[in-house]
C-alpha cells in the first residue's frame, strides 16, 4: 500500500474521521472519562487493540459469509458477539498489561459505539489492509481525543466559574464541542 494512502487514512482517523466526537460514536465513553493521562492512554491503547482485532475478524466474516449469503441483517449481532469475545479474552489475559484500575474498567470501556461503528464502516472498505489501517487510525484518534478531553475538562475547566445550570453535562458538552470545532476547522467542512 502506498505510504501516502496510509498517512491519509491516519490523519483522517484523527481529524476528519474522528469517531468519538465528530461521528458521535462512543461519545459517552469519552465524556465520562475523568481518568489521568496515563490511564486514558492505557485504556485507549487497549481499545485500539480491540479495534484492530475485531476488524481482523469481522471484515472477513462480512465479506466471505454475511455478504455472500445475504445475511447482512445478522451483521450487528455477529459483530457484537465478536467484540464481546475479544474484549473478554483481552480481559482474561490483560491484567498484566493494564494497571488494576484500568483492568477493572476495561470491559465496560471497550464495549462502545466506536468499536462497533468502526466494524460496520469497515465493511465498505475494499481491502483488509486498508481496513486495518483505518482501525488503527480510528483507535489512535479515539485515544487522543479521550486523553485530550479529560485533560481539558478536569484540568482547565473551573466548574465553580461556570453558571450553575451549565455545570455538569452541559459544560462537558461545550468542552467537547470546542474540540470538535477545532477538528472541524481542520476538516474544511463546517
Amino acid at each position: 500500500m502506498d505510504f501516502k494512502i496510509i498517512l491519509g487514512i491516519i490523519l483522517a482517523g484523527i481529524l476528519s474521521n474522528n469517531y468519538a466526537l465528530i461521528e458521535c460514536l462512543g461519545t459517552g465513553a469519552v465524556l465520562e472519562n475523568e481518568r489521568s493521562v496515563k490511564r486514558s492512554l492505557a485504556l485507549g491503547a487497549g481499545t485500539t487493540v480491540v479495534m484492530l482485532l475485531t476488524t481482523l475478524i469481522t471484515w472477513p466474516i462480512n465479506k466471505f459469509v454475511l455478504a455472500k449469503y445475504e445475511l447482512e441483517y445478522l451483521q450487528t449481532i455477529v459483530f457484537v458477539l465478536v467484540i464481546l469475545v475479544i474484549v473478554e479474552a483481552m480481559h482474561l489475559i490483560g491484567r498484566k498489561l493494564l494497571d488494576n484500575y484500568c483492568h477493572a474498567h476495561f470491559v465496560k470501556f471497550a464495549i462502545n459505539g466506536a468499536v462497533l461503528g468502526l466494524c460496520i464502516h469497515n465493511t465498505h472498505i475494499d481491502t483488509l489492509g486498508k481496513a486495518l489501517v483505518t482501525a488503527f487510525a480510528v483507535g489512535l484518534g479515539f485515544t487522543l481525543t479521550m486523553t485530550l478531553y479529560s485533560k481539558i475538562k478536569y484540568v482547565s475547566v473551573d466548574e465553580d466559574a461556570v453558571p450553575a445550570s451549565f455545570r455538569g453535562l452541559p459544560i462537558s458538552l461545550l468542552t467537547a464541542g470546542m474540540i470538535v470545532l477545532a477538528l472541524l476547522a481542520l476538516n474544511f467542512n463546517i
Binding site: 450553575a164 445550570s165 451549565f166 452541559p170 459544560i171 472541524l184
Partner: peptide, 22 residues
C-alpha cells in the same frame, strides 16, 4: 448551517440541558 454540523449537536444539547437544569 453550523447547527446541523457536529458542533451544533454539542451546542444545542448543552443549551437545552442547561435550560432544563434552570
Amino acid at each position: 448551517s453550523g447547527l446541523v454540523s457536529a458542533f451544533g449537536g454539542y451546542l444545542v444539547l448543552a443549551i437545552v440541558l442547561a435550560v432544563i437544569n434552570k
